[in-house]
Design a protein around this nucleic acid. Sequence first.
DNA 1: GCGACTCGATACGCTGCCGTATGGTCTCCG
DNA 2: CGGAGACCATACGGCAGCGTATCGAGTCGC
Lengths: 188, 188
Amino acid sequence: MEAKTLNRESWLSAAFSALAEGGVEQVRVELLAKRLKVTKGSFYWHFRDRMELVEAMLEGWKTGRIEAIKAQTRLDGRTPAEGLRYVLSLYGGSSNPRGIAIELAMRDWARRDPRASEIVAEVDRERLRCVSDLFAGLGLDPDDAFARAYLFYSFIFGEGLLARSAAPDRFEKARDICGKVLVPEGIV
Amino acid sequence: MEAKTLNRESWLSAAFSALAEGGVEQVRVELLAKRLKVTKGSFYWHFRDRMELVEAMLEGWKTGRIEAIKAQTRLDGRTPAEGLRYVLSLYGGSSNPRGIAIELAMRDWARRDPRASEIVAEVDRERLRCVSDLFAGLGLDPDDAFARAYLFYSFIFGEGLLARSAAPDRFEKARDICGKVLVPEGIV
DNA sequence: GCGACTCGATACGCTGCCGTATGGTCTCCG
DNA sequence: CGGAGACCATACGGCAGCGTATCGAGTCGC
């Protein structure tokens, strides 16, 4: 399992872990090197400089996310409502904490870096388009569908920002109720 | 207007600006000093070290936020629905970008710092309690009211995370529709 | 007008990080 | 076996940030 020699992917993986745990500021080559138990001599073999790693992260994240969202919203026999609930479950609660952490770190990064902002915008366009289509499949007109998608994703990301320790015991039930509000049973 | 001598508040204000623009990582004493056009000799007169500044930021933010949310949800003649729409307007769109930036930076900070996490949790408890009460005033039972408050704040914070440049022209209308979904006209 | 106090400047050492230069150790291939 | 190339270690210079120490310039009470 442990390859004896590192490659770009090893560094990228470590970089995303660092990103998830501490934000962009924490993806530093010497820290990653320590994490990978090598020296930065290795890093500068695989990458020209830190900037190149960061660019690779952005590109990799973009393509990966767009690919993922397309797969997740492709309803193979599911109804649109089931599809929406499925997507919601992917991010909801404590499933996939690493994914959520990366998502949030990415967005915090985008708030101050135009390059990251552009990448996140591209991903968001795709996201909103895909779940807009699902809501449209529920019978909503385009504007309402888009608004629902907007609400949907705002909730998903915002949920990761609300302090879970504020009232841990009540959150599960709240999430269930939110699910019903977000993807309604009976639509006008 | 310009006091000739700085005090703790001057440094705190600069620190919050730096926090809003670049996250906790950017509140560094030498950068703040440059911003305030003094040297760090001044800083270490007013604060023991960087940690003390950071602690003061957390405490100040907590009390300020709790005070604000109480004032904002105190409906003086307003109906609960109007109160909710008012709170929503305070964070919605492009009003008060600095406040939103601080809010988001604070939460990103909380994701990796237990101290900040605790502060944010306290504020969130108060927030959820206050707007839960407003929703309860709409006729919802406690669980539904809490869930609505949870959705309400998740949306508010999450909105700041969604890339506005993803589809700038459609967002205003979407926000309006979201408002109607979040604080419904007719409640069961 | 003279200490005491407030506030800030200057200068220093230390650490962590980036990037470079150079050398060493494998492996593969002929 | 021997050379080439892939991969990593070591060592260095440079910069930015933290914290300390020391000194200077105002200000206030008496």
